[in-house]
Simulated scan of single mutants.
Amino acid sequence: MEAAIVYLCIAFIITTLALVLRSDLPRWRGLNRETLAEVIGHRSSFHNNAKSFAAIYRFTAEGGIHEVIDQVYSGTPHPPLGTIVPLGYPFGRPDLARPPRPLLWLFIYAVLVFLLAMLVAKAIGWLD
């Protein structure tokens, strides 16, 4: 039973890593663009009985006006309305624009790879 759970967790981590990589591959292929966006609002959501906010950005790029919602929620509406924020996006994909947060994404990848390594080590008997 323990082996089944370990293998199920390995499959889950690999799937999660693949989904995160899939959304980041266009950024890694190069030809990234930068633009300035204005905060035009905040999307609110409830998580664990607490209200969270994600900024809504509007910018002009690639011949049109685009709006994107930040992927990171916070406990307060931040940044304030009207703030100009730099966003980065892959060439031809302004719908994937987001504020640059390299340390956050590095941390996410590091945690996923570490968990995968520990689970694989457990599965092959190195952590018995």
Rank of each mutant, 00 (worst) to 15 (best):
T83M: 00
P99A: 14
P99W: 00
A3F: 03
W28C: 09
V113F: 08
E2L: 13
T76S: 08
F91G: 12
A3N: 12
A97D: 13
S74V: 04
A11P: 01
A37K: 15
A55E: 10
P99S: 10
Y89W: 11
K122M: 03
G41Q: 09
E67T: 12
K51H: 02
T83E: 13
F91R: 15
E2W: 07
F59L: 12
G41S: 06
P99I: 12
P26R: 10
L25Q: 04
I5C: 08
A123E: 01
A121S: 07
I14G: 02
K51G: 00
L106W: 12
G64L: 00
A55C: 12
Y57L: 02
R98G: 03
E2H: 13
I13W: 00
H78D: 15
F91N: 15
M118K: 10
R22Y: 06
I124E: 03
L21W: 11
R27A: 14
L106P: 00
L127E: 00
A37D: 14
C9L: 15
R22H: 06
E38V: 14
R93T: 04
L116H: 05
L104A: 08
A123P: 05
T60P: 00
L116P: 04
Y109T: 05
G63F: 07
R29E: 11
C9T: 09
Y7N: 15
V85G: 05
V113A: 12
L36I: 09
E2A: 13
P100E: 14
P90I: 08
I84S: 11
D95F: 01
I10H: 02
N32E: 11
N49Q: 11
L112H: 11
Y73R: 13
A55G: 12
F107K: 09
G125T: 08
S74Y: 04
I13D: 02
